[in-house]
């Protein structure tokens, strides 16, 4: 099994510069880097293959036509792309009036907790080391904090909705979210160093 290396800072800078210059091959390279993650994220939110692929198309159209909106001072390219993917997926979820389903989706994914061995070829996906780091950081969160993060990030629920959904006071939800963000930031410090 080949372990994929992650994109270095310099490579990302060069890729970004080429995207800004309208180099079409750069978009193809970005696709190779992040499409599996976008598709995974969109599928995690929507649970629908066709809709998830639609999100992938939306994301790359957005990136290609609005790459000028990305500000490198505010963060690296890949998280920006992932944020677009998450917002598109949640927007699609809302447009499709899948509120009931959204609540149902907010239940834990079997893969969300604990370590899962990579499936065949999965570890060769570019960015797999980052995935491992992020996954480990999330898994290390206390259950109640991980639950809040999961509902907010993948379910798109507001703090109030999370409070209502879990039967927890709103203040507690906010505190858990704040603590989780702090823990994740600490756990992913090395990633931050890498990406900034």
């Amino acid at each position: 099994m080949t372990l994929a290396r992650r994109l270095s800072q310099e490579e990302e800078r060069r890729l970004l510069a080429r995207l800004r210059a309208g180099d079409e091959t750069a978009l193809g390279e970005l696709y190779d880097q992040v499409a599996p993650w976008i598709l995974g994220l969109a599928y995690r939110i929507l649970r629908d293959d066709d809709a998830a692929e639609e999100v992938v198309g939306d994301v790359f159209e957005h990136v290609w036509t609005r790459i000028g909106q990305h500000d490198p001072r505010r963060g690296p390219l890949i998280p920006w792309v992932l944020a677009i993917a998450r917002h598109r997926a949640l927007d699609l979820l809302r447009r499709q009036h899948r509120w009931e389903r959204r609540a149902a989706l907010a239940h834990p994914d079997p893969d969300d907790d604990g370590w899962v061995d990579p499936a065949d070829g999965e570890a060769s996906v570019p960015g797999w080391p980052v995935h491992e780091a992020v996954r480990a950081a999330v898994a290390a969160l206390p259950d109640e904090q991980r639950e809040v993060v999961r509902l907010a990030y993948f379910g798109g629920l507001s703090h109030s909705e999370i409070a209502a959904h879990t039967g927890t006071p709103l203040g507690t939800v906010k505190t858990r979210m704040r603590l989780a963000q702090r823990r994740l930031a600490e756990a992913l410090q090395s990633l931050r160093d890498w990406v900034t």
Binding site: L82, V116, R135, L184
Partner: peptide
């Protein structure tokens, strides 16, 4: 939270999707 999207397992796109 920026990197949380990569906590999800990747899904290999259909070859023709690219």
């Amino acid at each position: 939270m920026d990197w949380l999207g990569m906590a999800v397992r990747p899904r290999m796109p259909r070859p023709e999707l690219k």
